[in-house]
Structure formats: C-alpha cells, structure tokens
C-alpha cells in the first residue's frame, strides 16, 4: 500500500513539476502557479509517507498557503497577460537541455549504479511520534539558529516594505 502511494505521489510530483516548467498548452503564469501548488501538495504526501507529519503540514500551510498566495498576488498585481510567444532560441534550448541532462545523468549514475544500495546498511526506520522530539530538538539544540531565523524574517519584512515604497530611490 505504501509503495503504491509512493509511486502515485512521485509520479504526480514529477508530472506537476514538469507542467510548472514546460506547460505545452499554456504560457500563463497562473497555470504554472497552480501546478506548483499541486507539486507542493503531492510533496507533502511524500513527506507523510516518510513519517514527517509536521513538515507535511508546514509544507501545505506555508508553501501552498502563504507563498503561493504571494505569487498569485504578485501575478495579479502586475497584471501579466499571457505573453506573446517570443522567438524560441533553438540553440539555447538544446544547449540548456544538454547541460541539465548532463547534471541529471551524473547524479543518477552516482545514485543508482556507483553506490551499493543506500538503504542496505541502514536500520529500519523506527522513528515514531516525530513531532514531539522535533519540537524538543528545535527548541534545545537549535534554539540559536531558530532565533536568528526569526531575525531574518524580520529583516525580510522590513526590506520588502522598503522595496515596495512607491518612489524607490
């Protein structure tokens, strides 16, 4: 059952990711954004399969909720029309595709062929009831980074307010 779910969610993630990047039917950014929401939700499913329930929830809440709303908001704000297709740069497409394929090929080869089964040496996953220990670790060992992160968020907020002022100098 879990394996079936994994394959379903994995296929959904990759398909939606592909639709974000290269939707063959539409160039509208809104479509891409909606597919990105789908990708993120299916990723949350994968997180659940990995017993990271808290992260799955955060993923849906923060990403699909907050971040994507922000994206859509900006798209609306800018009022981006479905842009006219520009001339496709054949050479750029091919060379970019080759470069990405090379990166993927190298990673894939390393993962699948060069290393003996990765999970073989590992004990069976036995972390149960993950959220509580996660919270404990976060507020004990990682307290300082956590606080620094909060400062970072504050800085980002101030920066954004400054940037969105009408007369940017």
């Amino acid at each position: 059952m879990q394996d079936v779910l994994f394959y379903c969610f994995a296929a959904l993630t990759i398909l939606c990711g592909f639709m974000v990047v290269a939707n063959p039917w539409s160039r509208n950014p809104v479509t891409s954004a909606m597919f990105l929401v789908l990708t993120i939700v299916s990723l949350a499913g994968l997180f659940t399969l990995l017993h990271a329930f808290f992260l799955a929830a955060v993923q849906v809440l923060v990403y699909a909720g907050a971040v994507m709303v922000l994206f859509l908001f900006v798209i609306m704000l800018l009022d981006l029309k479905e842009e006219a297709r520009r001339k496709i740069r054949g050479f750029g497409m091919i060379s970019g595709g080759i470069a990405v394929a090379a990166v993927f090929g190298i990673i894939f080869k390393t993962l699948v062929f060069d290393t003996p089964r990765l999970s073989a040496g590992l004990s069976a996953p036995n972390l149960e009831g993950v959220t509580k220990p996660l919270g404990e670790t976060l507020f004990t060992r990682y307290l300082l980074p956590f606080e620094i992160l909060s400062v970072l968020l504050l800085v980002a907020m101030v920066g954004v307010i400054l940037l969105s002022k009408r007369d940017l100098r």
């Binding site: 750029g92 090379a102 990166v103 190298i106 060069d114």
Partner: peptide, 20 residues
C-alpha cells in the same frame, strides 16, 4: 541572465563529473 545561468550549470556539471 540566462546565459550566465547556463554557463553556471555547465560548470556545475563539470565539477560534479570530476567530484563524483
């Protein structure tokens, strides 16, 4: 920008090729 990104990816590929 994208030319730079392309060159960047190309060099990452080269680097990975040598490291991995």
């Amino acid at each position: 920008l994208q030319t730079y990104a392309f060159l960047f990816v190309l060099s990452v590929a080269l680097l990975l090729f040598f490291v991995l």
